[in-house]
Design a protein around this nucleic acid. Structure first.
Length: 437
DNA sequence: CCTGACTCGC
DNA sequence: ATGCGAGTCAGGG
């Protein structure tokens, strides 16, 4: 019986160390995972090119209509892909109120334009044009050109690119395929599996907040996760001092943003921007949060202090990131360093956990000879598999077990599981019709 | 060829 | 002036 949270007896050679600070062994994770990433790249993701082609026609048509309507409104043509020309149109020719200034002129980004959306009918049209053009250029044309002779897209997965230890996908990037809105579903329907196979996607539920809970030992968060509560709702109940049934959708949304903000080391200004509220209110939300979760406050303070003292922060597995910015005399650079000091242990530990789970799963697939099922994609807190129908139950059981038990935190890790015949129509598997362990 | 602006993901 | 990434385009060199 191996007491170590990382009880891999197969081909992980490293010795498990288990102490308070480094509760699991992470010796050379990246070296061990390299082969797996190369295999994932070679396997690739099967694409239904017809779905892409049909969408391209639809999108082409829509872009044409949108540009005609915009040009008809203003009486002349411009390049709608040029933010410089959009700025001239909106802020000079139409004399609309301009927001924040960038290096090269006034901003025309989505947040800015949404604020003046009602002042002129072309603004929603411009926003829609941008969305659809992005889809066409990045996710239709470009992706179609990258389909290889086997009908698949083969992304490259890299370590040693992200400073937090995350895996990076590029050429093409399959970690940022749209998921929200109707376009997200439409594009993801093009990502398919061969007949007799099924797509399985498993993602960690709230892994960053669970890691924060582990580090901070915050009793309220421990309780919430042990009881498997809706964590944003639970935060909303604390911040607004209300019972669950009285929390509105808007209050939950605010709590969700605060939760993310804590992990990113957000300031009242940053929170006010993203919630579109004033800074005083934003500061109040942050203060209330930290009052209600005092161990989180203590952890964050200690995180910054130790980072300054040592010059680095570290993950659960002891991976260090040096942060020289903390000693900068420039306030902006120093604040940025403080945010890195907060964020790195959380994001970096999450990255380690899923990389360890990937290794465990890979080992178990080999051991169980599940040779027709393949891990094809990792998206930070999610793994995607192309699975033989007959192997489905076994795969789900293994992946869930490995992901949830790869390390022992002071609270459980939890995954949610989805299946589908394509990536756009995935349904959650709630009932696990599986044999007893 | 590079940088800035923008938008996509976690 | 909230963390970590990638890709596309315009515009300038």
């Amino acid at each position: 019986m191996n007491n170590s949270p990382l009880s891999n007896k197969n081909n992980r050679e490293s010795v498990s160390i288990s102490d308070e600070l480094h509760p699991y062994n992470v010796d050379n994770i990246d070296g061990q995972i390299q082969n797996l990433l190369t295999t994932m790249s070679k396997v690739g993701f099967l694409i239904d090119v017809e779905v892409i082609n049909n969408l391209e026609v639809e999108v082409e048509d829509l872009l044409k209509k949108l540009s005609v309507r915009i040009f008809h409104h203003i009486g002349y043509d411009i390049n709608l892909n040029s933010s410089k020309q959009i700025a001239k149109l909106l802020y000079e020719d139409l004399e609309l109120p301009s927001g924040k200034k960038k290096k090269t002129g006034f901003s025309t980004d989505e947040v800015t334009l949404k604020k003046i959306k009602k002042l002129h009918p072309i603004i929603p049209l411009i926003l829609e044009y941008r969305t659809v053009y992005k889809l066409k250029s990045t996710y239709l044309e470009s992706l179609r050109c990258r389909i290889e002779e086997d009908g698949r897209i083969h992304s490259t997965f890299l370590l040693d690119v992200a400073s937090t230890g995350r895996i990076v996908s590029r050429d093409p990037n399959l970690q940022n395929i749209p998921i929200r809105g109707s376009w997200g579903e439409k594009i993801r329907k093009a990502f398919i599996v061969p007949c007799e196979k099924i797509l399985i996607a498993i993602d960690y539920s709230q892994i960053d907040l669970r890691v924060l809970t582990h580090f901070s030992k915050e009793s309220k968060l421990i309780e919430a996760f042990k009881q498997n509560q809706d964590i944003h709702l639970s935060t909303a109940m604390e911040i607004f001092n209300k019972k669950a049934s009285d929390i509105t959708a808007d209050e939950r949304r605010i709590a969700k943003t605060v939760n993310f903000g804590i992990i990113y080391g957000i300031s009242p200004h940053g929170l006010s921007e993203s919630l579109e509220i004033n800074q005083k209110q934003a500061a109040y939300f942050i203060k209330t949060y930290l009052d209600k979760y005092p161990q989180v406050k203590q952890y964050l303070d200690l995180s910054r202090q130790n980072a300054l003292k040592n010059g680095y922060t570290e993950t659960l597995g002891g991976e260090k990131r040096y942060i020289p910015e903390l000693k900068s005399k420039n306030h902006f650079i120093r604040s940025s360093g403080e945010r890195m000091a907060i964020n790195y242990p959380i994001q970096g530990s999450s990255a380690e956990i899923i990389k360890l789970a990937m290794l465990d799963i890979d080992c178990e697939f080999v051991r169980r000879k599940l040779s027709s099922s393949k891990m094809i994609l990792q998206i930070h807190d999610e793994l995607v598999f192309e699975v033989e129908n007959e192997e489905k139950d076994a795969v789900i059981k293994i992946v869930k077990e490995k992901m949830e038990n790869v390390v022992k935190l002071i609270i459980p890790l939890k995954v949610s599981i989805k299946e589908g015949v394509n990536w756009g129509e995935m349904t959650e598997i709630l009932k696990l019709e599986m044999a007893i362990k």
